[in-house]
């Protein structure tokens, strides 16, 4: 309860700041829109020359693009800036200020900043999904829709957990931001239809680096029947990754408190 109140305060706080830099706000949104536009264009052009990509038609692919963008925007809105800053907290020692406050350090470091431009950009993928649904290209029943939402949340949770874990490495490595770039690059693959990954790669991208679980699972929940085992796996994996990340973060803090000077 207290944490919810705090988070709402963060939200207000960041809104104020974003108003200070209104120009940037518009540019960021424009950038998001462009990025989405380019991705759609890319697939549109491919579908000019072929009816399906391994059985996926243009509508399912569009849904995937939208879902992937949705997850990206959610991650960018609530976590990205925070996670990126972990290395700065460590390097500049401002982590000390967080540690002396009566507050959960993971909560504070990873939820402090909210990007309203990314939040606003959620509108675009939502519009695409809305269009696909109203034009009858995809159909949602209530149970399917709740499953879709659940898997979407799992996708965000997985991205959050791995992102925090990667940046927690900055307690040991000074160049962790390079790893974060690599991490972003990895997850940019989540916007491709899972069918393109075959054999060992499908295994790799489901179980080792779970990018298929992130955006493809919610889409599969809508377009085909996703096995209960897969749903269970997605939920279990998110929970497990969140737990591991939390443990790892606290381990890093303990290390920080015994090694820093």
């Amino acid at each position: 309860m207290r944490y919810l109140k705090l988070w709402v305060f963060f939200l207000k706080n960041c809104l104020l700041r974003e108003m200070e830099f209104r120009g940037n706000f518009v540019i960021e949104i424009g950038g998001n829109l462009l990025r989405l536009g380019i991705t759609i264009l890319f697939f549109q052009v491919i579908f000019l020359h072929t009816p399906t990509i391994g059985g996926w038609d243009i509508h399912i692919t569009l849904l995937l693009v939208a879902v992937n963008q949705l997850i990206n925007n959610l991650y960018n809105a609530f976590f990205r800036a925070n996670i990126y800053q972990i290395s700065e907290y460590v390097r500049e020692g401002t982590l000390d200020f967080i540690l002396v406050k009566p507050i959960d350090p993971q909560f504070f470091t990873t939820l402090r900043y909210v990007s309203f431009s990314a939040l606003f950009s959620l509108v675009f993928p939502l519009l695409i999904i809305f269009y696909l649904a109203t034009a009858g290209k995809i159909t949602f029943s209530l149970p399917i829709f709740s499953l879709f939402l659940l898997l979407l949340l799992c996708g965000v949770a997985i991205r959050y957990a791995i992102g925090v874990a990667v940046m927690t490495l900055s307690f040991w490595v000074t160049e962790a931001y390079a790893l974060h770039g690599l991490y972003s690059e990895f997850f940019s693959l989540s916007g491709y239809p899972a069918v393109i990954f075959r054999g060992g790669w499908q295994f790799f991208f489901t179980f080792i680096i779970p990018i298929i679980v992130v955006a493809n699972f919610p889409v599969m929940a809508v377009t085909q029947v996703l096995s209960p085992a897969a749903v269970l796996f997605a939920v279990g994996l998110s929970a497990l990754l969140l737990l591991i990340t939390r443990k790892f973060f606290h381990f890093a803090l303990r290390n920080y408190c015994s090694a820093s000077s």
Binding site: F9, N13, P102
Partner: peptide, 10 residues
């Protein structure tokens, strides 16, 4: 704003 933040935290 920072003061108000501390108000919430503490």
């Amino acid at each position: 704003e920072s003061f108000l933040l501390n108000k919430e935290i503490y």
